[in-house]
Design a protein around this nucleic acid. Structure first.
Lengths: 201, 201
DNA sequence: GTGGAATCTTTCCACTGGAAAGACTACGCC
DNA sequence: GGCGTAGTCTTTCCAGTGGAAAGATTCCAC
């Protein structure tokens, strides 16, 4: 046992990831992390400042990881427009702790420069994927393009509901179900009547 | 000031609603609620048991309220299939504290009978609305119908992203944007594998 | 080596949620 | 009226939490 831990910052982030995934972020205890890492409960302050700083770092790590994964997606296939969404969902299910922190602004310090930089990186990756849905001619910015926003909402909603345990995840891999769900996104038809035509038509 | 508060249960729920909407559920303090209600910090225990019990009651209240609103939606118009989704989103934005607690299973006691009953009521209302998306011939159960699940995911995702501050809510009412987004849901146009298998049931 | 910077500990504090026991009040019953 | 019981709230105490401040230890450039 050394006085210097070696890489306490990383160890704390990993311990927090496990603890949040197991018990939820509301039951995350700094002192519990310190015990798991075998340091004093104030050791983390040098690296993160306070509890919120730790969660902010975790969120930034999540933005970076997700951004990296989404940018590596092969979107050239016949259903390439779906792949970013599927990757988004699979990443969320594989990183529940990060995902939970990433989209709860109450938990983090939104003014943190590292966080903002990582978030901007993810936003860029999302726009690339959304452009596949919206059509390559159009901008994929959800702020201006309702179809892109619909793609993001659908993907994010599926991931959120799945993480909250509201989906039948029994047996079949979620990736296939996600594909089936994401396929139901379509451009708008004439306003005034529904774009869906039930089977009896 | 009476020894008996009168309706402490309701007062506590309302104070909690305000506090969560203002600061998020993670910063909700029982003692803070007690101060706001001018009672001792253990007075609530008789009504809710513990902190989790209070959040559980809040979630149940939310399920009941949302269910009631969704069931009152007029779904007969030309775009009636959208109205449940729009009402879902508008309810969520009008009740951010409830919504936040309703879909975070870590925060509540999922075995609470009152909660389960209220949740079942909401599930029924959601299935009615989802059936409008999925087509009236088909079951609107998101557990078996991918289109119904897509409708729920899209609606829920939009509400979640809006509450997290990720949407451009400047100026225009969110209801219209929600309509534009929800209109993008459609049956699959891609050949190949049909997303819905006509299993028996 | 030595001085300074980085890292971790010790100690203390205000605060939190919960347990236990007691005090007050409403209300049916005599 | 008075009485007793159930319901409601308080008082008191406790273990646990996050954070502030100051000190101890180790690393590293020189």
């Amino acid at each position: 046992m050394h006085y210097h831990h070696g890489d306490l910052r990383r160890a704390m982030l990993e311990a927090a990831t496990e603890a949040i995934a197991a018990n939820g972020v509301d039951r995350l205890s700094i002192r519990g992390l310190a015990r798991a890492t075998d340091v004093s409960h104030t050791a983390f302050r040098h690296h993160f400042g306070d509890r919120r700083g730790l969660l902010t770092a975790l969120a930034a790590e999540g933005y970076g990881s997700m951004s990296q994964v989404l940018r590596a997606v092969d979107r050239t296939g016949p259903e390439g427009f779906l792949e970013t969404g599927v990757a988004y969902i699979e990443w969320a299910l594989a990183h529940p702790a990060h995902f939970q922190v990433m989209f709860e602004p109450d938990l983090v310090d939104m003014d943190d420069p590292d966080l903002r930089e990582a978030l901007d990186g993810l936003a860029g990756a999302l726009m690339m994927g959304a452009a596949d849905f919206a059509g390559r001619d159009q901008a994929g910015d959800p702020r201006t393009n309702p179809l892109a926003l619909a793609a993001w909402s659908l993907t994010h909603g599926f991931a959120t509901l799945a993480l909250a345990g509201n989906l039948p995840t029994d047996g079949a891999p979620v990736g296939e179900l996600a594909r089936d769900v994401l396929r139901h996104l379509a451009p708008p038809t004439q306003p005034g009547h529904p774009p869906t035509e039930p089977g009896h038509g």
